[in-house]
C-alpha cells in the first residue's frame, strides 16, 4: 500500500494528512459500540502513544472522528480504537470490514499522569465508553504491578450486555491483583453483580483517600458526581484527573471547536488535573 506524500515547503510537515492503515479485526462490544484493531504496518516503529491520547480516524470520502486509543501502549504494531456509533463518520466506520483501509493521524492530546501514581493507590473510575481511554492505563500499571499499591477499577454501564471488555475485566481481577467492581443501571435475574450508579461502588472499597490517585472518564454528568464523591471522601483534588470531551475537528489547535473556556481540549487536554477544570465544570453551556 503506497502512501505518496509530496514535500511541503519550508520544512513544515503538514499536520492534516492522514496515514492509511489496515483494519485487522472488528469486535462488537455491544449494540452500538465496536473495537477496531488496526495494523499500523511500517508506521508501527515511529508511532508512539501515551495512555489517554487520541487519533483522528479518517474514512475516505466521509470525514474524521476523534477516537481515543484503547490498546496497550507497549504494542504499537496493532492499535485498538473503541468506537461508539453515533454520527456520520462513526456509522461509516461501523460498516467497515476486515481488510478495509482507513486513515489515522495522531497521537494527540495530553495523557494520564501515571508517574504521579507510583507508590500510591490508583483508583480508575469509568462509565460506559469511558473505560476505553483508561484501558491503556490498566495495561501499563499491570505491566509494572509492583510500582503501585492498590489498583481499583470501578466501572459502570447501562446494562450487563453494554459493558465493554468483560473478559478483560475478569482477567484483571484474577491475574493482576486489581480490585475490579462493576455495576449496571439495571439488569435481569442472570446478573449477580452490583446494580446502581458507579459512585455507589465507593461504599464497598475503603479508600485511603490521601494515598489515592484517581483517573475518571465517562459522561460528563457521571464525572461530576464522581468528583463530588471523591471530594467527600477526602481525595486531594490535585490527585484527581479527568478526560474531557468537546467537538474535536482538527486536533491541532486551529479550528477552535474544542474550546472549553480558556483551554483547547486538543492541546491541553483531554486529560486535565481536576483543579484546572473544576471551575469550568460548574458553568452551564460553557
Amino acid at each position: 500500500m503506497n502512501n505518496v506524500v509530496a514535500p511541503v515547503p519550508h520544512g513544515v510537515t503538514d499536520p492534516m494528512l492522514s496515514h492509511p492503515v489496515l483494519i485487522r479485526r472488528i469486535i462488537w462490544e455491544n449494540d452500538d459500540t465496536f473495537t477496531l484493531t488496526l495494523d499500523m504496518g511500517d508506521w508501527a516503529g515511529p508511532f508512539k502513544f501515551l495512555p489517554g491520547q487520541f487519533n483522528m480516524v479518517y474514512v475516505f470520502g466521509v470525514g474524521e472522528a476523534a477516537i481515543s486509543i484503547s490498546s496497550d501502549p507497549h504494542k504499537t504494531g496493532l492499535l485498538d480504537h473503541t468506537i461508539h456509533r453515533v454520527g456520520t463518520v462513526t456509522t461509516s466506520l461501523a460498516q467497515k470490514k476486515r481488510g478495509d483501509v482507513i486513515g489515522l493521524r495522531g497521537p494527540y492530546g495530553s495523557s494520564w499522569p501515571i508517574d504521579a501514581a507510583k507508590g500510591k493507590d490508583v483508583c480508575i473510575i469509568s462509565g460506559g465508553i469511558g473505560l476505553a481511554p483508561l484501558r491503556p492505563v490498566v495495561y501499563t500499571l499491570a505491566r509494572q504491578r509492583d510500582l503501585y499499591k492498590r489498583i481499583i477499577v470501578l466501572y459502570g454501564g447501562r446494562s450487563p450486555l453494554d459493558l465493554l471488555y468483560r473478559v478483560e475485566l475478569e482477567k484483571w481481577a484474577n491475574e493482576n491483583n486489581i480490585e475490579t467492581l462493576v455495576t449496571v443501571d439495571r439488569g435481569d435475574t442472570s446478573w449477580k453483580g452490583h446494580i446502581g450508579v458507579v459512585t455507589g461502588l465507593f461504599n464497598y472499597i475503603k479508600l485511603d483517600a490521601r494515598e489515592t490517585v484517581a483517573y475518571v472518564c465517562g459522561p460528563e454528568i457521571m464525572m461530576k458526581y464522581t468528583v463530588d464523591e471523591l471530594e467527600r471522601r477526602g481525595v486531594p483534588s490535585d490527585h484527581v484527573f479527568l478526560s474531557m470531551e468537546r467537538n474535536l475537528k482538527c486536533a491541532v489547535g486551529f479550528c477552535g471547536h474544542c474550546q472549553f473556556g480558556p483551554t483547547f481540549i486538543c492541546k491541553e487536554g483531554p486529560v486535565y488535573p481536576l483543579p484546572k477544570i473544576r471551575p469550568l465544570m460548574e458553568r452551564k453551556e460553557l
Binding site: 439495571r186 435481569d188 435475574t189 449477580k192 446494580i195 446502581g196 461504599n203 464497598y204
Partner: peptide
C-alpha cells in the same frame, strides 16, 4: 454478600433495579 431488588416487568420478567451490599 449482595441483595438484588427486583420488580416484575410483565412481558420481560423480573428486572433488577438495585443491589444492596455490605454495610448497607
Amino acid at each position: 454478600g449482595r441483595v438484588a431488588l427486583e420488580i416484575d416487568f410483565p412481558g420481560r420478567g423480573a428486572m433488577r433495579i438495585q443491589t444492596v451490599g455490605p454495610g448497607e
